Simulated scan of single mutants.
Amino acid sequence: MLQYLIQEFENEVKSTRKLLQAIPEKDLGYKPSPISWNMGELAQHIATIYYWYVGAFTMDVYDMSSDQLERGSTNDIKATLALFESNVELARKAFESLTEENLQTDWKMTVGDKVVLGPMPRANVLRGFLFNHTYHHRGELIVYLRATGNKVPNMYGPVYEDDAPQEY
């Protein structure tokens, strides 16, 4: 199972990279509603999820309050892309610590004494908290890109913009 999860990770890293690279600096401040993140904050959050692989794979209890990740400005897409690439490398190294057996060991996330996720088998953390969490926010980012008139990159095949009727 682990080899398939690693393959999915690597394939999806490519898709996430394409999506983050499609964000124009001029639209980083776009915010679809008062309670939403702006595009720069959402992009940085997606890049940050890759950092959480380290805590999910190398610790049985990951205390978010004691973990400090240096992030650049949400108004600088190059800084977000650099954060993403750095975090992907950390995630790859963390994958090296995984075995089929420890995919079944329980894991939980805390903020101080408060449990915010788990306990659950680490395989569920990988699928639910890391993979699906990324996919969810990438979907939001696609809506942001379209709402600002930007082209969405193809990640799983052609996208609407590739086949849309051209207006002249």
Rank of each mutant, 00 (worst) to 15 (best):
Tyr53Gly: 09
Ile6Tyr: 13
Glu41Trp: 03
Gly157Asp: 08
Val54Phe: 09
Leu117Ala: 12
Arg71Val: 13
Gln3Glu: 14
Leu69Gly: 08
Pro24Lys: 04
Leu145Ser: 00
Ala82Cys: 03
Gly55Tyr: 06
Thr80Met: 05
Arg17Met: 13
Leu117Gly: 02
Leu42Trp: 01
Val116Pro: 02
Asn38Ile: 04
Tyr62Val: 13
Tyr62Gln: 14
Phe57Val: 10
Asn124Met: 12
Gly149Arg: 01
Gly55Cys: 12
Glu140Asn: 12
Asn132Cys: 09
Gly157Val: 11
Ser97Val: 08
Ile35Pro: 10
Ile49Phe: 14
Gly139Gln: 04
Asn38Thr: 09
Thr110His: 04
Met155Phe: 05
Trp52Pro: 12
Tyr62Asp: 13
Glu101Trp: 00
Val111Asn: 13
Asn124Thr: 13
Ile49Ala: 14
Asp63Gln: 06
Gly149Phe: 02
Val13Met: 04
Lys31Asp: 01
Val111Ile: 09
Asn87Lys: 05
Met39Asp: 04
Ala43Ser: 11
Ser33Asn: 05
Asp63Ser: 08
Phe84Ser: 03
Glu161Phe: 08
Phe95Tyr: 06
Met109Ile: 07
Tyr50Val: 06
His45Glu: 04
Phe95Ala: 02
Ala82Ser: 09
Asn75Tyr: 09
Asp113Glu: 10
Lys18Ala: 14
Glu10Asn: 15
Leu5Cys: 11
Gln44Met: 14
Met109Asp: 01
Glu10Tyr: 10
Val116His: 00
Val143Pro: 10
Glu8Gln: 15
Leu141Asp: 02
Ile35Glu: 10
Leu83Trp: 02
Tyr160Pro: 04
His136Glu: 00
Gln21Tyr: 06
Asp60Glu: 14
Leu19Phe: 02
Tyr51Trp: 14
Leu28Val: 03
Thr134Met: 13
Val88Lys: 10
Arg17His: 15
Val88His: 10
Asp63Gly: 11
Gly128Gln: 14
Glu8Ser: 15
Glu140Gln: 15
Tyr135Phe: 14
Arg146Ser: 12
Lys26Asp: 10
Glu167Cys: 05
Arg92Lys: 15
Leu98Phe: 09
Ile77Asn: 06
Thr148Leu: 04
Tyr144Lys: 02
Phe131Thr: 07
Arg17Glu: 15
Asp63Thr: 08
Ile23Tyr: 02
Ile77Lys: 07
Asn87Thr: 04
Leu2Gly: 07
Tyr53Thr: 05
Val143Asp: 10
Tyr135Gln: 10
Leu2Ser: 06
Leu42Gly: 07
Val143Trp: 08
Asn11Gly: 14
Ala123Thr: 04
Thr105His: 12
Met120His: 01
Pro121Leu: 05
Val125Ile: 13
Leu141Thr: 00
Pro165Met: 07
Leu145Thr: 00
Thr110Lys: 06
Leu69Ile: 15
Gly40His: 01
Trp52Leu: 15
Asp162Tyr: 08
Ile142Gly: 11
Lys14Glu: 15
Tyr160Cys: 02
Lys108Arg: 12
Phe95Ile: 01
Tyr156Pro: 10
Val88Trp: 08
Thr74Glu: 09
Met64Lys: 08
Ala82Gly: 05
Leu20Ser: 05
His136Ala: 00
Asp113Val: 03
Glu8Pro: 12
Ala22Leu: 04
Thr16Ile: 11
Gln21Asn: 14
Glu161Lys: 01
Met120Arg: 03
Gly29Thr: 11
Tyr160Asn: 06
Lys31Leu: 02
Ala79Ser: 10
Arg122His: 01
Gly55Trp: 08
Asp162Pro: 13
Pro32Ile: 00
Val152Ser: 03
Lys18Leu: 15
Leu69Ala: 10
Ile6Pro: 09
